[in-house]
């Protein structure tokens, strides 16, 4: 499709009206790092969302509200994100690409594209994020697990936009972490791992573990989670949980790494994020 021009809506309502008015021809554009290099931008009009007031990063009560066009740099450095105790998101948003690209890549664009190598997505999965979707007709909230499992391209109907990612503030005695491994500082991850642990006394009450970049979609590691709940997060438990996670992970090979190599890296990264998350959880008393 031949690109003819741009629309620069000044509000979300205006953006939704433009999209509704040209179905199949108007396409939303966030940071542009995915769309710009394409030979065919698959749009007659690109709807530039950068001035639509969707770049909020604010903690409201117990919910961190992240506008869809908040950049990864703004998320990684956002005081509200740190105040909400969401360390895995700080880690992940700050780990993607280079600082220059993090100023351009948006959280919403990264989530909707659901790139296999995404750093933020596994973090959003363990943090229990909720994706707010709006159209000219109304809005709905989709839990991140559903949003990912059904795939954004199926979840989002024509004329719908992700406007906000909402993440619950970390509860007391809860810690989270994200780590990636890549061939160079700016290469895509060949494995990413995120974990959130909630402690009760000396034992893990709740565990969420997710990995990315091992296959087209991120994956929760249920066996790793089950190996943690009800146990003290001591080194032997964390090693056993990481081993269980690496064994259950679905892993694909590509030119970056073999299945065997990725699985090995996965076990190491899961152990390390569990260690960090457990340390952070123990440090968050109130």
């Amino acid at each position: 499709m031949k690109l003819e021009g741009f629309s620069h809506p000044r509000s979300i309502e205006e953006a939704l009206a433009v999209l509704a008015g040209a179905p199949g021809e108007a396409r939303p554009l966030a940071g542009g790092t995915a769309v710009v290099p394409m030979a065919d931008r698959r749009a007659r009009v690109l709807v530039d969302l950068s001035r639509a007031g969707l770049d909020t990063v604010v903690l409201e009560g117990d919910t961190l509200r992240l506008g869809a066009t908040a950049t990864l740099d703004a998320v990684a450095r956002g005081k509200a994100v740190t105040d909400a105790g969401l360390d895995a998101l700080v880690d992940a948003a700050g780990a993607a690409a280079s600082r220059r690209l993090r100023r351009q890549i948006t959280l919403g664009g990264n989530l909707v594209g659901l790139y296999p190598w995404s750093d933020p997505v596994p973090a959003l999965v363990v943090l229990g994020a909720v994706v707010r979707v709006r159209s000219a007709a109304g809005q709905r909230d989709v839990p991140i697990d559903d949003f990912v499992a059904r795939h954004p391209s199926k979840v989002l109907q024509p004329g719908e936009l992700v406007t906000e990612i909402r993440v619950p503030r970390a509860a007391a005695r809860t810690g989270s972490a994200f780590l990636k491994f890549a061939r160079s500082a700016v290469d895509y991850a060949l494995c990413g791992a995120a974990a959130r642990l909630r402690l009760d006394g000396d034992v893990v009450r709740e565990a969420r573990v997710a990995v990315g970049a091992l296959r087209p979609l991120p994956m929760r590691l249920a066996a790793a989670e089950q190996a943690l709940v009800g146990k003290a997060p001591d080194p032997a438990t964390l090693v056993a949980a990481a081993a269980a996670g690496a064994a259950e992970a679905e892993v694909s090979a590509d030119f970056r790494a073999s299945v065997e190599y990725r699985r090995e890296v996965c076990g190491v990264l899961v152990r390390r994020v569990l260690e960090t998350a457990a340390r952070r959880a123990a440090g968050r008393s109130a």
Binding site: F6, G32, T33, V36, S50, R100, L101
Partner: peptide, 27 residues
């Protein structure tokens, strides 16, 4: 591809890769 930094310009004071921006985005 946005990786090397040679095309960096300031857009409203922020350093961005001009190879990763369509001109229409900076109207």
């Amino acid at each position: 591809a946005g990786d090397c930094g040679a095309c960096t310009v300031l857009v409203d004071g922020r350093p961005l890769a001009s190879c990763m921006l369509l001109a229409g985005q900076v109207a």
